[in-house]
Amino acid sequence: MFEEIIVAGAGGQGVLVLGEVLAIAAVKAGNKATWLPAYGPEMRGGTANCSVVLSSKEIGSPLVQEPSLLVCFNQPSITKFGPATAKGGKIFANADTIEEYPQMKEGVEIIKIKVNSLAAALGDERALNMVMLGAVLKKSAFVTLESCALALRDIWGAKAEELLPTSLKAMRSGQEAVAGQA
């Protein structure tokens, strides 16, 4: 397995946590993983993104420049990273906020999902990143819902008991939403 992922969106959309869950879940399944946030001046101004590399072998560069998988929560993210996505790669796009799609490389598959609406329907708009995570799980075989739940327990510690049920519901909702898409 070798997967280069960029998760991008606005600050407060849970972008960094989503990347971290993918990385830890991959480690729990016996793989190597790196998680690198955009930091410093890039952090200011409300945009956030992180590079996640998952691999069954030792990882070279932790910085992703040509993602095989791109997760976008807002318009600026897809405008910036969409064209860089590798041939045959996958893009998960938040259809609630993204209207314009830039020119992509050949064979790039775009999976559209309204994560704001789906999270709101579950009664917790903050769970939009977990809805997106569910979609990623459904369409990619490299991590399971179970290992993601274990990863969330690590990240949240004592708060996991309280937060996990909503997150699992959100993940399942995301999985169902993209099940029909080719």
Binding site: V27, K32, T34, W35, P62
Partner: peptide, 10 residues
């Protein structure tokens, strides 16, 4: 470097 300080790894 700064990236090596920021990268999360196992």
């Amino acid at each position: 470097d700064g990236y090596t300080g920021q990268v999360m790894e196992s």
